[in-house]
Design a protein around this nucleic acid. Structure first.
Length: 343
DNA sequence: AAACAATCCAACCGCAGTAGT
DNA sequence: CACTACTGCGGTTGGATTGTT
C-alpha cells in the first residue's frame, strides 16, 4: 500500500489545474519575503487555495528565478544524451548538470524530441545501442520493396519510351546510385543490428565462423562507456559526474577500470557489458564486424571521444566494410539468410 | 474554414526515501 | 524499532497549441 494522497482535492475544495498569473504572483511574493519553509503549510500562510505539493511543483518547475527557459542548445542536447546513456532516466541527476533546467523540462524534452531523434537514427533510446527490434528491420523490407518498385519503374521508362541513349545512361546512373544508397542503408542497419546479436543466434543459423572476423570486443563502439574518473579530473563542458553517480549507473554498465583502483589510477576507456574486470574483455561478446567507431587510445579525453564519434566514419572503416563485402565468407547463403529474415 | 491528428508541456499522481518523534 | 509527516522523484495525464487533410 502506498501513501495516501497529500490532499484530497475532491473533499478539501483545493484548486488544481493550471495556475493563474494572480496565483503565481501570490506564490512568488510570499516566497520572496518568507522563503518557502514547510510546503504543506505554505498555501495557508500565503493565502493560496492549493495544496503544498502543487505550490512546490509550480515553484520548482516554473517560477524559480534561476530557471532558464527556451530552446535547448545543441550542447545541452549532447549533454543530456550523454548523461542519459550513463545514468538512465535519472532526470534530477541529469538536471544537476544543466544549470537552470528542471528535471521535468529535461524529461519532457527527452520524451518529445530526443527519444524520437535517437529512434530515427536507429538507436535504441533506452540502451543507446543500435535497434534490433523487428519493426525497425521491417522498415528495411519496405525500403527494399520501394527500391524494387523504383527499379521496375525505371525499366518501364527505358523499355516503353523512346528515350535517347544519353537519357538512358542518365537513368541508369541514377538507378545505380539509388540502389547503392539503399544497399548501404540496408547494410548499415542490418549490421548494426547484428552487432548486437549473439553469433549463435538462431536468427542467422547459416552464418558461420563469425569469430574469424573478430576484432577485439572493445572495438565495438557500443561497448565504449565514458571515462567517469577522468571526467572528475578534467570535467569538460560543465559535466562533473561525482562518485555518487557511479552508483547510479544502469545495471550492467560500468566504467572499466584497469589497475588496482582508488584515486589516481589509470582508467581504461574500454568497458564491456556485464563484466567488471580486465579478464572480462576476453569473455565478452565477440564482435564479428568492423568497428564503426575506432577504439580510443589510452588517455583519450571524454571530449575527444565525442569529437571522434562525430567526425568518423573514417576511410579505414569503409575499407574494412569493403573487405568484409568482398570476403569469401559473405557468400550467397550468408545473404540468403539475411534477406529471408528481413522478409 | 472546419475537422481531425499529432505534438507539446505543465501539472498531477503515487511511490520511495528520509527526518523527526 | 515503528510510525508519521514531509519532500523528491519519475511516470503519466490531459488541455492547449500546432499541423494536416
Amino acid at each position: 500500500m502506498g501513501r495516501s494522497p497529500c490532499c484530497d482535492h475532491e473533499t478539501s475544495g483545493l484548486k488544481k489545474g493550471p495556475w493563474t498569473p494572480e496565483e503565481d504572483k501570490t506564490l512568488v511574493d510570499y516566497i520572496a519575503t518568507n522563503g518557502h519553509g514547510c510546503w504543506r503549510s505554505l498555501p495557508k500562510l500565503a493565502g493560496l487555495n492549493r495544496c503544498g505539493k502543487s505550490c512546490r511543483l509550480r515553484w520548482t518547475n516554473y517560477l524559480r528565478p534561476d530557471i532558464k527557459r527556451g530552446k535547448f542548445s545543441e550542447e545541452e542536447e549532447r549533454i543530456i544524451i550523454d548523461l542519459h546513456s550513463v545514468l538512465g532516466n535519472k532526470w534530477s541527476k541529469i538536471a544537476t548538470h544543466l544549470p537552470g533546467r528542471t528535471d521535468n523540462e529535461i524529461k519532457n524534452f527527452w520524451n518529445t524530441y530526443l527519444r524520437k531523434k535517437l529512434l530515427e537514427r536507429g538507436i535504441d533510446p533506452n540502451t543507446h545501442k543500435p535497434r534490433t527490434d523487428l519493426n525497425h528491420l521491417l522498415n528495411l523490407s519496405q525500403l527494399l520493396s520501394s527500391a524494387n518498385y523504383n527499379l521496375n519503374y525505371l525499366n518501364d521508362i527505358i523499355s516503353n519510351n523512346n528515350t535517347t541513349p544519353w537519357e538512358n545512361a542518365l537513368i541508369f546512373q541514377a538507378d545505380q546510385v539509388a540502389d547503392q544508397l539503399i544497399k548501404i542503408q540496408l547494410f548499415q542497419n542490418l549490421f548494426q543490428a547484428m552487432n548486437n546479436t549473439n553469433c549463435s543466434s538462431p536468427i542467422f543459423p547459416n552464418i558461420q565462423n563469425c569469430a574469424n572476423f573478430s576484432s577485439p570486443p572493445h572495438q565495438n563502439p557500443n561497448l565504449i562507456f565514458h571515462d567517469i574518473q577522468s571526467m572528475n579530473v578534467a570535467p569538460c563542458n560543465g559535466i562533473d559526474i561525482d562518485s555518487r553517480d557511479r552508483n547510479d549507473l544502469k545495471p550492467n554498465t560500468q566504467a572499466f577500470v584497469e589497475g588496482e583502483g582508488g584515486d589516481g589510477y589509470d582508467v581504461d576507456l574500454r568497458a564491456i557489458k556485464g563484466t567488471g574486470r580486465s579478464a572480462g574483455i576476453h569473455e565478452g561478446i565477440v564482435n564479428p564486424l568492423p568497428a564503426l567507431v575506432s577504439e580510443p587510445s589510452p588517455g583519450t579525453t571524454y571530449d575527444q571521444i565525442l569529437d571522434n564519434m562525430s567526425s568518423e566514419p573514417s576511410s579505414t572503416v569503409f575499407e574494412a566494410w569493403d573487405k568484409l563485402m568482398d570476403d569469401d565468407q559473405t557468400n550467397e547463403s550468408f545473404w540468403k539468410d539475411i534477406l529471408e529474415y528481413v522478409n
